[in-house]
């Protein structure tokens, strides 16, 4: 991994996202004043020295409306990457594309109520900036690779959601067992011919 821009630089970039990026998307096949996802992604890929989207990839993006917050996350990331640093220090071709079409972004989108949290919430904003750097094999300037990985792990929304779900499940299970035990202690047990 190489050293990239500092995390503060990335945070400032994300906070300054123009309002137009937060507009609604145009409907597939339709026209209007909304966002055209494929066009935004294509601009970024070309400007960072990558190939444009192929028809399959365009179709995937068009058909991803049901993935909660996914498309908006891509738009936010396009803005983050469409920065002088990345335009001058082009990431290895294919890395941004791989990140956009990975399972990571739909999973990340699914754990938050609104994509705006990735702009307004300090932890989520930092998480997205760190993810963006990590996806193109960079760690934040002023840090080392190890520290960057550790910090990203502490901010990991998907893992946090998994832990919360597991905790909730464990609590629910504990409640069920306690209730079953209490119910059954009040009732009769099964007959046995010896005692302990």
């Amino acid at each position: 991994m190489k050293e990239g821009p500092s995390i503060e630089y990335m945070l400032d970039r994300l906070t300054a996202i123009p309002a137009v990026f937060m507009k609604e998307f145009n409907k597939a096949g339709g026209s209007g004043t909304g966002l055209e996802l494929s066009a935004i992604v294509n601009d970024l890929l070309l400007d960072t020295g990558d190939k444009p989207l192929n028809p399959d990839e365009i179709k995937k993006l068009e058909n991803s409306a049901n993935k909660k917050n996914y498309r908006k996350l891509i738009v936010i990331l396009c803005h983050a990457y469409h920065d002088l640093f990345f335009l001058e220090n082009r990431p290895e071709p294919g890395l941004i594309r791989k990140f956009f079409f990975s399972q990571k972004l739909p999973a990340l989108g699914a754990v938050v109520d609104s994509e705006e949290l990735f702009i307004s919430d300090p932890d989520r904003r930092e998480e997205l900036c760190r993810l963006a750097l990590d996806a193109v094999n960079l760690f934040p300037g002023g840090e080392d690779e190890k520290r960057a990985k550790e910090r990203l792990a502490t901010l990991d929304s998907i893992e946090r959601k998994k832990i919360l779900d597991r905790t909730r499940e464990a609590q629910q299970r504990a409640r069920e067992i306690r209730e079953a035990m209490l119910r059954q202690e009040a009732e009769e047990a099964a007959s046995k011919m010896s005692r302990e």
Binding site: M181, Q184, A189, A190, E196
Partner: peptide
């Protein structure tokens, strides 16, 4: 820590509790 010991797939509907002396 009983809830950790009881298998996750155990059907609790047949659970009985025998008293101990």
């Amino acid at each position: 820590k009983l809830e950790q010991i009881v298998p996750l797939d155990a059907d609790l509907s047949r659970l009985v509790v025998n008293p101990t002396s």
